[in-house]
Design a protein around this nucleic acid. Sequence first.
DNA 1: ACAGTTTCCCGTAAATGC
DNA 2: TGCATTTACGGGAAACTG
Lengths: 423, 423
Amino acid sequence: EKQPCMPTHPQKPLIIKTGVQFTTKVRLLVKLPEVDYQLKVKTTFDKDLPAGRVSRQFFILTNNTKVMDIEDYSNGCLSVEFRHLQLKEKKYTNGTKGNEGLLSVTEELHSLSFEACFTVQGLAVDLETCSLPLVVISNVSQLPGGWASVMWYNLLTDEPRNLGFFGNPPRASWSQLSEVLSWQFSTFAGRGLNKEQLDMLGEKLLGQHASCGDYQVSWSKFAKENIPGKPFSFWMWLDSILELIKKHLLPVWNENFIMGFVSKEMERALLKDREPGTFLLRFSESHLGGITFTWVEHSDTGDVKFNSVEPYTKNRLSALPFADIIRDYKVISNGGVPENPLKFLYPDIPKDEAFGRLYNSQPSKVYPYIPSTLIPISELRSEASSTPRSCPSPEPPMTPGEFDMLSEHLCFDIDTMSSPYSE
Amino acid sequence: EKQPCMPTHPQKPLIIKTGVQFTTKVRLLVKLPEVDYQLKVKTTFDKDLPAGRVSRQFFILTNNTKVMDIEDYSNGCLSVEFRHLQLKEKKYTNGTKGNEGLLSVTEELHSLSFEACFTVQGLAVDLETCSLPLVVISNVSQLPGGWASVMWYNLLTDEPRNLGFFGNPPRASWSQLSEVLSWQFSTFAGRGLNKEQLDMLGEKLLGQHASCGDYQVSWSKFAKENIPGKPFSFWMWLDSILELIKKHLLPVWNENFIMGFVSKEMERALLKDREPGTFLLRFSESHLGGITFTWVEHSDTGDVKFNSVEPYTKNRLSALPFADIIRDYKVISNGGVPENPLKFLYPDIPKDEAFGRLYNSQPSKVYPYIPSTLIPISELRSEASSTPRSCPSPEPPMTPGEFDMLSEHLCFDIDTMSSPYSE
DNA sequence: ACAGTTTCCCGTAAATGC
DNA sequence: TGCATTTACGGGAAACTG
């Protein structure tokens, strides 16, 4: 008869960082008109978790009891919002680390419990409820891993509290998973992924299987094991791109100018018949959080040539916005005059027509100083240059779906106060 | 008979940030051979400070008693080092803020007390000592202000514990102060200030008075009131430059390539008879933590022209090291071919001869990608350009002196564990 | 040794207090 | 309201710990 409810922020709930404030709200769904005395609610972390089930134990450092109040805006429900809650790890000097140690910290699920007790007509009634599974982290560097767990759990089970979920996590079908991935981009970056982009991701994750019908993806393949030959997992890689977009590429991404997820073969195939100077934007597959552009040109002998610039990462992009990089990029061939090789955004949009609005005006402030800007330059020497690559065409994004359900599930809410994760 | 002693780190002692660990050590100078039982020392913050003297009160959050031990390396003295001490402010809900409120937090002086008690031949002996005045801050942004106080105090008084010092702070003679300033640069940046640099600073602080004999500088003029027309004080400005050097200009500074403190008039005077393309490096006087270069050239009509680039600040410099900026800087005049106007470091050192060793090799990593670098560029349009400026010549740095005394005074030591202030 | 995890703390931004 | 001061916490790096 009680239910925890009402998300206040939609960003990255269900992940709590130790030492950082979070907020949670509980609402009593049934009305109890005769209960108008103070109804006290107590919050407990991992209340009746069988000891030894988790390898780490935490407790709520701050005040954990509060009196329910009538919500102004709703239909007179009782509710209580806990603010400034903070989690701290219990340290054991005796080695009572319970867990088998198979799970990583971001796979270890916890929960918040809420209890209240009151009397109606002389009858004592105990109320208790608890949150969906939570992930506890100690540093933001664990946030991507934690979010992967939250996604996987809520995608694949309806159980409200299966804390052993990652002991034997089920597989996800590619059709389910791809929808969630697109939803990530539309939620956090404002634009989801189109079919071509998802096809490339599917192939990256599953090899050629992806194309022939629906395929099952294991949790390990998604978030735990590294991509062959790379020092990061599929999700780490994808999340690094999401972060790059959020911080440095938002307008360009939302204008759909970033093809982004394109194999090098496809890139080459797309560009090869295009006007010289046609380029497209693609995320780096070899490094975390990098974006590059590839353009096509014709060599002296008439052959088609492809060039890609060294990927730009957050450091470079915070010195110079990406649109300005595209505007100003120059190549110096054999000591000649610097020239911008980028003419048409694939398939054939004149560069300035596409990016014009996104350029930073950087007006010469009338200092006693001469204004100065940074210009990205590549120097090509003789024949010791460039390699080919190629790619598909943009299309409308995918729709949400699966995750609306999650949102509804979240009849209660874990916050991190004012500036929740994912800024 | 006891004395607190032995600095473990020489950086910015006597400043404690709340919530950040610090270390302090006390040493018993007289030997007490008959005392070989456990001698316990207790540390107290602002022990017997008359209430109401300070506006904020703090306490030691962590364990504050420890047993003395025999120092291995020394002559068998007893000593004790407190580590992981942490300060927290006492919050009063009742408005018992004591101070008149004239002083800023970085002018409010505190102290650490150490107590021990033992018995010799049935006689109880109490030992007590305390630290030099301390400044307590809550954010690193207050560090420059705090350090100004520490400098001023130790420059102008030998009293070990005049906590009311800033109620009526004495003036400093320019000869004293300039020595301390030079010492700051030699301590934190590896090279002090020469006479010309100090003359410019003196003039900036005192106007023309500086030249005619020694002059008194008030505390207010040094660190409290803003430079006329600027939103920062003299010390804030100077410290921002020190930080810029520490983080981004260390090698260039240590090679003595940065004239730095030069009035615009002097700059112009120095450059005007020089070869076109002669340049010098100068810190911005209008903005915090900026460095610019000024070069001389001859206009079409044969007039001498001076140009200064918009000052580089830490953000720009972390995208591109300063030596590389000098190497690569280009000016485009009226859409012509970009050209580097910087030829000779004042007075006549060919640029690459001076800076060659400091250039970053940025070798073309053999990616499948084309390497790309950022190049600083200025665009000059028709006649709408440049303004003049001018300047003195470099010379050997000043010597320390006054502050060695301080160091000796510091017979005890406040640390901030492992990464003390000033990194 | 080393990888996973936590702690530390600067530096920016936001909140708070006066 | 504005300024001085504190709090919050992301992010990089060091420290810890099995």
